[in-house]
Design a protein around this nucleic acid. Sequence first.
RNA 1: GCCAGCGUAGCUCAGCAGGCAGAGCAACUGAUUUGUAAUCAGUGGGUCGGGGGUUCGAUUCCCUUCGCUGGCUCCA
Length: 638
Amino acid sequence: MEKKVTISVKGSPPVEIRAQGLNGLKALRALSMDNMERMAAIKINGEIKDLSAEINSSAELEPVYIDSQEGLQILRHSAAHVMAEAVRELFPGTKVTIGPAIKNGFYYDFDYERAFEANDLPKIEKRMAEIIEEDLPFIRNEIPHSEAIDFFRSEGEPYKVELIEELSEEAITMYRQGNFTDLCRGPHLPSTGKIRAFQLTHVAGAYWRGDERNAMLSRIYGVAFADRESLNAHLKNLEEARKRDHRVLGRKLDLFTIRDDVGPGMVIFHPNGAMLRRIIEEFEIKEHLKRGYELATGPQLLKTELWKKSGHFDHYREHMYFTSIEDQSYGVKPMNCLAHMLIYSSKVRSYRELPKRYFELGTVHRHERSGVLHGLIRVRQFTQDDAHILCTPEQLKVEIQNILDFVRDIMAIFGFDYDLEISTRPKKSIGTDVDWQKATKALIDSVEEYNLPYQINQGEGAFYGPKIDVMLKDALERSWQCATIQCDFALPERFDLTYVGPDGEKHRPAMIHRVILGSIERFLGVLIEHYAGAFPLWLAPVQAIIFTITDRNIPYGEDLLETLSGAGIRAGKDFRNEKLSFKVREAQMKKIPYMLVVGDKEMETGNVTTRLRDGRNLPPMSPKEVVDRIRDESKNRR
RNA sequence: GCCAGCGUAGCUCAGCAGGCAGAGCAACUGAUUUGUAAUCAGUGGGUCGGGGGUUCGAUUCCCUUCGCUGGCUCCA
């Protein structure tokens, strides 16, 4: 008797069908599913598989469409395989390594006699288009471990051999399309023809397995989407994002410059930029004082001996700058913690005064490798909104939760979404395992009690303790670490910090290093992109600009300027003998929130006509009404 | 630091099979007294990132160095 199985798909009645030769595609066809041509894969009892996967027992099925999150992932991965085939064909001798799908696209790392360059991409794209045109099926195949190794050896693919040697599975899954076979878990599209919209974007160097001791490979990046329209939309988005780039806006808005002759990673803030950061710094000081922090200020140079004591010399030296004064060696501070600990240890502390929260807008210098510098976001001198909290171990969790509250409040004001990441003990570190475990647990417990989603990064903590990082995204969707909360049992130990407990005995306090914005420079960079340069009124370096229509209006304009400045509003003027539209255009490009027009009409009535940055005009108001409006809006941080 | 690409006027960029270095915007001067995203006319401005080499001659080719960009790595 022939075997039958029952298959079903959510939302429609189950169907009984002959098991012989049944696969995903046939099953979905039997269930008369719509949009068959848009299917990329299938879920069989929740497990994602190729459409060609065999079905030999009753199962619940779910199609995976090519434009779904999972479908796109498969599409991009398949595109990577097609690229690998094209490259191997066009550049004989190329060894393939790995080629995953990534956000919006894919990459593949190759080892070739020379690095690939942008000029090579059109040729590769052309060949890929041909492979897609041929509509070659992706064929899955499982072979024994040893056979897989033999196969890739014979193909001259040492990287694949290395990968397989590390796999413990008996059977190795391979995928083949045309004459290219790759080690791959899958799933893949049914055939290359489903790749409708892709583009190779750029090349880059990348180390084999991300380790700089390994060979430098040549990576080619591409993007791929379900259809041409989505691809074009994505490319257009990228274009828009580039216009938001803080390095471009920084110049246009006259915020800052970074110059060769000054030094890489060293920022010069122009008046507008300096104003912007000062507004943020003053805001921060207020917010910290509100939450029980005390101000502290440490020196820029501290004796090298002290950096040895703290462990920075052993673990962080390559990022530090040293100098010598009267035969004494000094280190320029890369972190602010030392002075804060010394304030703590300047007298005997009682448990009654804990927690101590020391806050400093501390400027630090770090020797970042030249290749990583990036506008304001990665620099060599920056100012942190840094605090160190010394508390009893029992207070640790509440303190961490207070900080998480603080982060939430501040990010809400700026309108940022963020992700949390917890990093654990790195190889190069100080302190005992027990302390590391305690500290790591404190961090995880705090976040979990808050029901906040988080991701764990194994071995990525600071050398003195585990940490929670708050990641913000820039215009190009790159994530940047801003706030960070780091636990530390090691430094209090090294500096022999103590407090007297209720029992009259000395105890060791725990320490938290934390920043909310992180680096003011980096935060500003992300902020510029976040607002596309159109800062809300409370942050705008110039909040209002006054325009005259003719020279007759200048005295009235000067009076108005005085009124505004007197009221604490950051106001400017454009009294030049130019047409109004010309002045409006300039102010508009500088993204100034309020444009205040004073002409003969306004002089007669003693009023002001206001144009807002979004193009709206307000009815004429008295100078006092304008002042009140701007002050209100500014106070509400809009 | 590593791989690749790129450095031309204040900015954005053109030029260069090796033969006197260009545009637009900005700046400056003059005219215009102007009502919500560019008034007109004129003028000045470059050791073609720095150093070295090849050449009769280098912005152009080669080497080197500094810097920038995209990644890798690292991190606020």
